[in-house]
Design a protein around this nucleic acid. Structure first.
Lengths: 356, 356
DNA sequence: TTGAAAGCGCTAACAT
DNA sequence: ATGTTAGCGCTTTCAA
């Protein structure tokens, strides 16, 4: 009859013939307990199927949890801007609870900055950390420090094998390259000359790009699509003007049917070139719902975008952390997001629902 | 300094020179309050920027909210099975809170059943309802009843203009048809003969299908793809065997390059036919991650699936309701999900992340 | 090693 | 119309 009346600690205590404090000690493994009390409580716990009321729990312990969110400065990059907006959304979402989320921004291209900011994070004494570890070696040091201080962390966007996080949130890069290949192949049909455009980077991003390219090439190889040619170009640095000029040169010299750009920023720069030179018939597959990419997709210059959903990555990362701290809920070891394919016809549905 | 110390009702009360009960009355607009007290409290609320602590609130009011989830029987249909699993997930997710989620299943093809079950829902005296209104007229009656009883409701999957829900959750059907067309056109290139396969239905589903077809045809028209032919077939009933036989006949008589099937169940039946007759070269675009559809996608017979994400629809529907009941948070009037394109290369990433 | 009791912030019954 | 107070279930301090 009263199947919906919840079992309270008090009920367990009565059944075990001890006080609530003793039950609490058993539940949280704190303090000393006699063997006798222990077994009695365990039995009562078992028999009643006690489930803690986490609402009461967070209210009872009036502790405020501090979460540090460390990522590249959103003001300097449209991709990271989306992650930043995810952090912001999560902050609002959890405002009611006893959590304080503090953003820490570093410079994407400056390892020193990463180190300095990670020190600031440590000084903040967070209860846990959400982190985009784009600088490999510096991140390793930071992980070691976090481990020493027993601060649990979730990493997103970039995976690092040696890390020992609660959870990694991101995508399967290799498979993402395969998806890009599949789309380009579908668009081009039986054959074509394809370019893969890289930019040399010092960040961990370089590995991102290599993995995507590996998947991209494997797709063609595995499906015996031998009438396609695939050629990679690695541009030496981040200079937009140089990139534009050199790409124009390449395109003027050879017959190109499709281009795959494994990073979000260079996707719209490539689109810009195709727009300028009027080569709208070249199929273009790139990454992410950046403002400029959206523009060129509407223009019909970008054909497919693979969406990495940086915003949702951040929201979910914070969510995992809050649930871990407040409710002791273990997140999955890895949460690989779906490889979302964006086209001219479904892009609006993504932009709208991104705000949800 | 103490910017992080939260303002409590007590603080507001002291500042306003009244008791906590008065502040509570103002906050919840219950009971009578003198003008004078009202303004003082409002001022104090304003000045302090008071935000309620919802944890304490749900704990304090020991009320258990009842949510009824009414949908077609998951046991009889793989599509609705996914919605059912969403309800189940939501039940787990909110188990901690003071909510009790009760599923109510009706027979998808039986209007009488819908009516009977809606009566059961009323008898359950829910605080709010999540509902898939697949039977138009019967749903209207139910909505009227809910309105009379002042029970708020969220509808999902099927929209009904005359309804007055807190929120509709689903997809833009017209645009979804356009996405299907876009994929088929990309696959086929410049020209081709296309079939659109319908099954005559009495449910509100019929409108679903019509909207999708409208979008599908508009895409070709708007893009001046005049070298495509599009022909629709409406099958008279739900008999699998008849469908299979007739489709085989059609395919043997005419040259078909692509098929668009606007519903999930008939997608894999069509795939079955193509598999049987060995016509794997016919491009097939259908709906949803049903078990059989997944199979035929791996087999390379289904080329694209549009994912309606029934599971997430249900999870989110319950989420909106809980937030509304517990936290008085208004959901958006409509939450249109992204039009997710599934292919052989990204399908696994969807299956995995669907479990998150 | 254990228990009693005072919170946490809010709600609601009861008193005035 | 307003105030007082005893919960809600859990945590945590203090005393035993």
């Amino acid at each position: 009859m009263d199947q919906f009346k919840n079992i309270r600690i008090k009920d367990v205590a009565e059944l075990a013939g001890v006080s609530v404090a003793t039950v609490d000690r058993v539940l949280h493994k704190r303090g000393k307990i006699s063997e006798k009390a222990m077994t009695k409580v365990m039995e009562a716990l078992e028999k009643t199927g006690y489930k803690p009321n986490l609402i009461a729990s967070t209210l009872g312990s009036n502790k405020v949890f501090k979460i540090a969110a460390m990522l590249p400065n959103p003001a300097l990059d449209d991709y990271w801007n989306q992650s930043g907006s995810g952090i912001f959304k999560a902050t609002e979402e959890w405002a009611q609870y006893n959590v304080r989320i503090e953003p820490f921004y570093f410079n994407l291209y400056d390892k020193k900055s990463f180190q300095q900011v990670s020190q600031k994070v440590i000084d903040f004494k967070p209860d846990s950390v959400l982190l985009a570890p784009v600088h490999y070696h510096e991140a390793l040091d930071f992980f070691a420090e976090l481990k020493k201080l027993e601060i649990p962390y979730v990493i997103f966007n970039t995976n690092i094998q040696e890390a020992d996080p609660l959870c990694f949130i991101g995508q399967d890069l290799y498979q993402s390259g395969r998806v890009g290949a599949e789309m380009l192949a579908t668009k081009l049909g039986k054959k074509g000359n394809i370019l893969v455009l890289h930019i040399y980077e010092e960040t961990e991003n370089a590995i991102h790009v290599k993995e995507k390219e590996r998947g991209f090439r494997d797709y063609f190889a595995n499906n015996n699509l031998n009438d396609f040619t695939i050629e990679s170009f690695e541009f030496p640095d981040f200079n937009d003007a140089v990139f534009i000029r050199e790409l124009q040169q390449i395109l003027s010299k050879q017959q190109v049917d499709g281009i795959f750009v494994p990073t979000s920023k260079w996707t719209h720069l490539t689109a810009l070139v195709l727009d300028k030179t009027g080569q709208k018939d070249i199929a273009l597959v790139g990454y992410d719902l950046l403002k400029d990419n959206i523009h060129y997709m509407y223009e019909g210059i970008i054909n497919f975008l693979i969406h990495q959903n940086p915003r949702k990555q951040a929201v979910k990362g914070i969510g995992y952390l809050v649930n871990y701290l407040l409710f002791k809920k273990q997140p999955p070891l890895s949460d690989l997001f779906p490889l979302e394919i964006i086209t001219r016809e479904n892009i609006k549905s993504y932009i709208h629902s991104d705000l949800n």
